[in-house]
Design a protein around this nucleic acid. Structure first.
Lengths: 155, 155
DNA sequence: CTATTACCGACAACGACGTTGTCTATCTTA
DNA sequence: TAAGATAGACAACGTCGTTGTCGGTAATAG
């Protein structure tokens, strides 16, 4: 026997739903030639955006230190997803930009997420899925990038 | 401008919903005398259960190594949430049990989660919330403990 | 024009938390 | 009774976050 009230289920289901989508995304990304993409990378590359950014800026966007952002950028650079170049107008800055390979991951992710969403719609119905999204929008914050994921779950 | 298809929003909203609930849970737990409880602890203590368990068993339940489970148990022990005792019938085993202090966290968590759920119901409606839970149940796995959280999000 | 201040990126040291590997003690089984 | 399996402790290591420090460049105040 264990303590098991109704309120415990809601956060768990939300997390499991998230996990299912992310896991299936990355299984499919691996099949499509991106076996080294990790859940974090997608968020980071979204945060980098099309215009590019710097380590300090990225750290602020993601809510981590500039050093942590720098290390993540190094990883993405090693995987070929981003590249760095000196800013000619401010030689202190190094601008991080998505490579075509990085844009490819984002584009594929977008299509895969749309497919996964369609599969959910097929299971629970299109209207119910739209309701679900609308309801979640009402109870969650608007700022989408400050996930503060790193170490947040740690013991 | 950034790549921003409809499919990207669903996983994000699910995660943010989860985050909102967990963050508010721990803010309230801190107010109620449990400032050191971390998100992971609740799941682990749920996994330990009323009858208790061992490090090896716990590791299997949570999907981590027995060493990692042992370290988590040490942390919980230091916080006074669990205690260990030798199994008289198998002196190799050390049984981990919740202390009354540990049971207290779980009981308070249960009430807080119920309150948070009620607040969601007040915002989106009770029926819509029940629909949301029912729909999520349809698209998520049944095994609830294998979160495989540790390091899963890492870059 | 110059001196101070602010900012960027790199490097080092550290802590938290996961992993694998090894070891001893104990239980189980052939 | 001997061999194998299992529990838990200990150590070493890797990853990823943190803070602190530093040199180089930009912006700004006097």
């Amino acid at each position: 026997m264990s303590i098991d009230p109704p309120g415990f289920e809601l956060p768990l289901r939300l997390f499991l739903g998230f996990r299912v989508l992310i896991d299936e995304l990355h299984a499919e990304l691996a099949r499509q030639g991106h076996p080294h993409a990790r859940p974090m990378h997608g968020f980071v590359m979204q945060a980098i955006g099309i215009e590019g950014t710097t380590a300090v800026e990225l750290g602020r966007t993601l809510g981590v230190s500039k050093q942590a952002a720098g290390k993540t950028i190094e990883t993405l650079e090693r995987l070929g997803y981003v590249e760095r170049a000196r800013d000619p107008r401010d030689t202190r800055r190094k601008i991080v930009r998505l490579t075509p390979w990085g844009v490819d991951v984002l584009a594929r992710s977008a299509r895969i997420f749309d497919d996964l969403r369609a599969r959910w719609a097929a299971v629970i119905g299109d209207e119910r899925l739209r309701d679900l999204e609308a309801d979640l929008r009402k109870v969650t914050p608007q700022d989408v990038f400050r996930l503060d994921v790193p170490g947040w779950f740690g013991a």
